[in-house]
């Protein structure tokens, strides 16, 4: 599970000046041919930096995303739902491990990444800064937030960095269970009692604005995003991902007799594009910069887990080992 709309670093005009033009041309030709870049290959500093940032944000999102859902394991209705949700949360945490490993091959150690998460230096998907009030919120996350994540991940799996693509292939294979499970939960609620339907509808009303934020604001056309696209770091624009999500899932929500809290939402049959009320991007910025309903709680919980696990790591530490970057 993961949110798009990555926060990429602004590129300085001089970012590529120091790169060897011959090596840069070879690097770009390789990507152009559709070949993957591997850890030991030469790559521009900017490519390395942006990839670390993107994969790291993705990994953090898996870890933090497990928190609002994890909340509901003990209170999920029935034994089977508890088992399934536990398996799903376990998957998400496993995905984080795969992603940290992929980012590590670029030269940033896992401990540094975890440090940057718990000190608030690194970002994660903004949607997890909102609380899951009821079981229906948990159903929404399992189905639709995961669906959004899959749209992103399938696009990124065609990117240029080998270790990231391979991690995403593994992740996407597991996401199919999450998606089906989430849909199953929502169908159960939507076709159930009046109370259940109301709960599900209330959850959709709560989660729709953050869901529209999920893919990030429209990309500004810039040299920067052009380069990231050319290098196959960014595979699709935020708007394209959002359109694809709406196209696949709005009809599925409607067929359950549920409504979406945006009276302007409709598909324009001439353009084939979905029209919607522009999401509140000031709110998005406010929350991503730390002022959301759950930002403090998410980081505090993660930090506490890290601190409470310290004695285990210390007990197992082998003082003579030295860290080397993993291979692939």
């Amino acid at each position: 599970m993961y949110g798009g709309g990555n926060v990429f670093e602004r590129m300085k005009a001089t970012a590529l000046v120091d790169e060897d033009p011959r090596k840069l041309a070879e690097f770009e030709a390789r990507i152009e041919r559709g070949e993957k870049i591997e850890p030991k290959d030469w790559m521009p500093q900017l490519y390395r930096k942006q990839l670390i940032r993107m994969i790291e944000q993705h990994a953090h999102s898996e870890i933090i995303g497990a928190l609002p859902e994890g909340t509901w394991i003990t209170r999920a209705p029935g034994f089977k739902r508890k088992l399934a949700l536990m398996a799903k949360v376990q998957d998400e945490v496993g995905h984080a491990q795969l992603l940290y490993a992929a980012a590590e091959t670029l030269g940033k150690s896992r401990e540094k990444m975890i440090d940057d998460l718990i000190t608030g230096k690194s970002k994660y998907s903004n949607i997890f800064n909102y609380p899951a009030f009821t079981w229906a919120d948990s159903c929404f996350i399992s189905w639709l937030v995961d669906a959004g994540a899959i749209v992103n991940q399938l696009a990124n799996a065609k990117g240029s960095y080998g270790p990231y693509c391979r991690a995403l292939e593994r992740i996407c294979a597991e996401e199919s269970f999450h998606l089906k499970y989430g849909h199953h939960c929502v169908i159960h609620m939507a076709t159930g009692s009046k109370k259940q339907r109301e709960m599900m509808q209330a959850a959709i009303n709560r989660w729709w604005p953050p869901m529209m934020h999920f893919f990030g604001p429209s990309d500004t056309i810039s040299v920067h995003s052009e380069i990231l696209m050319k290098w196959k770091v960014k595979m699709a624009s935020n708007d394209a991902c959002r359109q694809q999500f709406l196209d696949m899932y709005v009809p599925k929500i409607w067929e359950l007799g549920l409504t979406i809290p945006d009276k302007n939402l409709q598909k324009n049959n001439e353009t084939g594009q979905w029209e919607y009320t522009e999401p509140d991007w000031d709110e998005f910025k406010r929350v991503i910069n730390g002022d959301g309903p759950c930002n403090k709680e998410r980081l505090a919980v993660r930090r506490t887990a890290e601190e409470r696990g310290r004695w285990v790591r210390e007990a197992l530490l082998a003082p003579k080992t030295k860290y080397i970057t993993p291979l692939a």
């Binding site: 401990e111 975890i114 440090d115 718990i118 930090r303 210390e314 080992t321 030295k322 860290y323 080397i324």
Partner: peptide, 21 residues
């Protein structure tokens, strides 16, 4: 958890162990 940001000690070096392929 105290509401104010708990002072966070930087992680020790190799706190996260070495890697295995």
């Amino acid at each position: 958890i105290p509401l104010e940001e708990a002072a966070h000690a930087q992680k020790n070096k190799l706190d996260q162990f070495e890697t295995y392929e």
